[in-house]
């Protein structure tokens, strides 16, 4: 079940990379967050960790529902163009994604010998980190970049849940608080004018 959810997580991220519509991107991000939340829920219930269940619930509520809606509102409010064309050509991207996956597994290979269980999860998290970075760099618009950043945050959570079986409760809450803060700041930055970087 855990492996399945992680697979879906990665898949949704990769699909997001190739999306050319803003709403599509938001959707895939929502699915991505949902998978993360479900993962946390299932892992939390299997090892009976209340903190992880709580964080899974918050993830689903905040990342899978609230933030996509918020961003959608903003994009409608400021009339962002729906068309988002990746700067990196598709054939390069097709090459890059597998290369990143191979590389991260190569990177985490020595760890497998040291800790027995989670090496692969870690590799996946690192590769999703790279993919999120790829997402940021292939778009020039502000909203896709923000989504890329949020995807980055998701990959962090993936690492936190899978590799360490959940961080201390206080820290997780703190991270959520910071995320909230980030959203506020982003909202402030949008202020009036539509900007492109």
């Amino acid at each position: 079940m855990v492996d399945f959810l992680i697979g879906l997580f990665l898949a949704s991220l990769i699909v997001a990379l190739f999306t050319t519509r803003l709403n599509g991107l938001l959707l895939w991000y929502a699915i991505n967050s949902l998978m993360l939340g479900l993962l946390a829920l299932s892992m939390g219930s299997s090892i009976d960790d209340d903190a992880m269940i709580l964080s899974g619930v918050i993830t689903i509520l905040m990342k899978a529902i609230a933030i996509p809606f918020f961003l959608k509102n903003i994009s409608q409010k400021f009339h962002f163009s729906q068309q988002i064309v990746p700067k990196i050509k598709v054939h390069y991207a097709i090459m890059l994604v597998p290369v990143i996956l191979v590389f991260t597994f190569y990177l985490s290979e020595p760890i497998v010998n040291m800790i027995h269980t989670h090496a692969n999860y870690m590799a996946i998290s690192i590769s999703s980190l790279f993919l999120a970075l790829l997402l940021i760099m292939e778009h020039s618009g502000v909203v896709p970049k923000v989504i890329g950043f949020l995807a980055l945050e998701n990959s962090l959570f993936l690492l936190g849940t899978t590799a360490t079986k959940g961080m201390p409760m206080l820290i997780e809450l703190g991270i959520f608080f910071d995320l909230l803060m980030a959203i506020v700041v982003i909202n402030l930055l949008f202020d009036k004018e539509e900007m492109r970087i």
Partner: peptide, 24 residues
């Protein structure tokens, strides 16, 4: 100047690769 994310991506790649290669 404007491709910061790409630069971070590359430096990450470089550092991690080198770490793996030279220290392991």
């Amino acid at each position: 100047q404007t491709r910061y994310a790409a630069m971070i991506f590359n430096i990450m790649l470089l550092v991690l690769f080198s770490y793996r290669l030279f220290t392991h």
